[in-house]
Design a protein around this nucleic acid. Sequence first.
DNA 1: TTGTATGCGTTATCAT
DNA 2: ATGATAACGCATACAA
Lengths: 367, 367
Amino acid sequence: MHFVSAYILECKRLHVIVSRRASSEIVTIMPPTSSPTLNDVAKRADVSTATVSRCFNEPDRVVPETRKRVMLAVEELAYTPNFGGRVLASRKTHTVGAIIPTMENAIFARGLQAFEEALANDGFTLLVASTGYNPEREFEQIKKLVARGADGLLLIGWERSKKVFDFLKARSVPTVIAWSTRSAKGWCYSGFNNHQAAQQMAERVIAFGHKRIAMIAGVTKGNDRAADRLSGVIDALRQKRLNPDRLPVVEAQYTLEDGSRAFRELMSRKPAPTAIICGNDVLAAGALSEARRMGLKVPEDVSVTGFDDIDIATVVEPPLTTVHVPHRRMGQAAASILLNRIAGEQNASNAEFETEIVERGSLGPAR
Amino acid sequence: MHFVSAYILECKRLHVIVSRRASSEIVTIMPPTSSPTLNDVAKRADVSTATVSRCFNEPDRVVPETRKRVMLAVEELAYTPNFGGRVLASRKTHTVGAIIPTMENAIFARGLQAFEEALANDGFTLLVASTGYNPEREFEQIKKLVARGADGLLLIGWERSKKVFDFLKARSVPTVIAWSTRSAKGWCYSGFNNHQAAQQMAERVIAFGHKRIAMIAGVTKGNDRAADRLSGVIDALRQKRLNPDRLPVVEAQYTLEDGSRAFRELMSRKPAPTAIICGNDVLAAGALSEARRMGLKVPEDVSVTGFDDIDIATVVEPPLTTVHVPHRRMGQAAASILLNRIAGEQNASNAEFETEIVERGSLGPAR
DNA sequence: TTGTATGCGTTATCAT
DNA sequence: ATGATAACGCATACAA
């Protein structure tokens, strides 16, 4: 992305201000406060720690008058229960963790939002960590969240080192796998069939009369969703008697920039493809903007399709023909499955959602 | 959890497949494992708990041979140090929390990513929580993260209830405020001047000859960034001798949809504005796509400007003329400021970044 | 180099 | 209805 860095350099040179004020001016007059504890509250309210604890956990079991006194002390001291102590004593965190490949694009945002809302409904907190599509880093984040006492985990996709699954199993961490229906015995999922969805999209493209088709896929290594979408396209070609060996494929990372680059590369081939199937909407959007830069009309000169149906799909020009994924329902289902698991449910219950193609205009007939 | 079952029922109706396999088929043969503890590892490796602990915290102080034995036991038991216990004993979490309004759009993504990377460099973990732009919910999330032992916090923007600041101060939680330079004594920030940036953008619009200008602002209540951007525009008008009272303003939430709706509303006025300044790129993108639907050319029929310079700005048609914000550097600076604070630095050090206007074509001369 | 013992803040059990 | 007290898992000062 030399465009970006060149730009940033320019900014830097031009005008950053870093100010530093004298400490005397700003320091809050206050001893290096350590957090107030149950004990502090108890003393101040003139009750036992047990009573204070009850005020938080079983408020009904303490008379209103005492409770009021306690809550006042809580306010005054800005007391917050120490999570560590709490977990240590109760063995429950009411927290689940989600580990996603990236927050840099919106692919996971909507599903995660729904996931969080559903969790919040049941009094659970969601903690999110990201991996940058790095498997090692995923394992680290998993360990971190588990160590932090996550009652359960949401992971994206199925493909990861056996080590990770072994760890999860050994620790019996309730886990739900999202964005994919590939799984194995004992692992729950809430997802959709990436292979099938991509296959359907490819069939649609073929139905439009395209023969010279290319694909901008996500990086397939270690990413079953990307791999399935690719293999789905290949299977469609095969079934329609097109030679899949002649499908040009460029694997691209997850930015618009990557999509643009891949598009340029594919279009430089002779003969150029008449349709480009993209592994996700971000790549497709990048492709579209590159098409514009190259002076190519979509879909007149070349068709482009997306996958995911995130916001960006509706706002590009032309709007993307893409695979709609019911992100919110998938996230909600993931939450209910996970919460059931956490509550001790032993049956593996899964949710598989149908996807469907949304035609918006970026796919047209072959010339 | 009737909520869950109701949901699954609804899914079913709609074409979701929910499978439930017999438990015998899937249950991992395993006692209801409770997590292994230091003690378990110690016994298995035939050392004391202190030694095991040291293997994690001061590996040099234990001979390689013992360490190897210990680590083996750790592997075999899939042991992970219990975070709660650890924090309780050491009073340090090496965790910071970030609380952002929403994950649903990319406005905060890039800055946060940089923030996380910088933290990771110093061995810190980032936990992210979101509020849905709800101030009450922000306070809850703050308390949650603090209770969880966050060593520090990143918050977006300045405007929030005094209660929250009091809490933060009472608990001396190191905090950095991002995306804004409005602050007060003792509070650090890493941000930019929203007012000034918006003012500059408005001046640019005026310089293009526009007189009938309108604005799609973010919701200003409780959101200083949105409010500052609005007041910046107003001040520009005033300075250029245009009557700010005749600036039509629609406040919109944060989705593309909201931007579209607001655009339609503004354009239905007689006479219609010739330029619409948007409070952020998402709203601007929504406006652009609505313009297309209404058959309006941008910038020939109406100019549209954005703010933030997130990815979407480059991919819409026409690409957005917008305010570039150095998100990554802002995130990095936020991290170093916060880490300094956590390390005990008492000086309030701030970072203020300049923004600049990127011309991409959505702003043109007035007709 | 390693082990022993104590305390961190909370919950939960048992008394009162 | 409330209080006293024993865990919970770990780090650490101190002892060996």
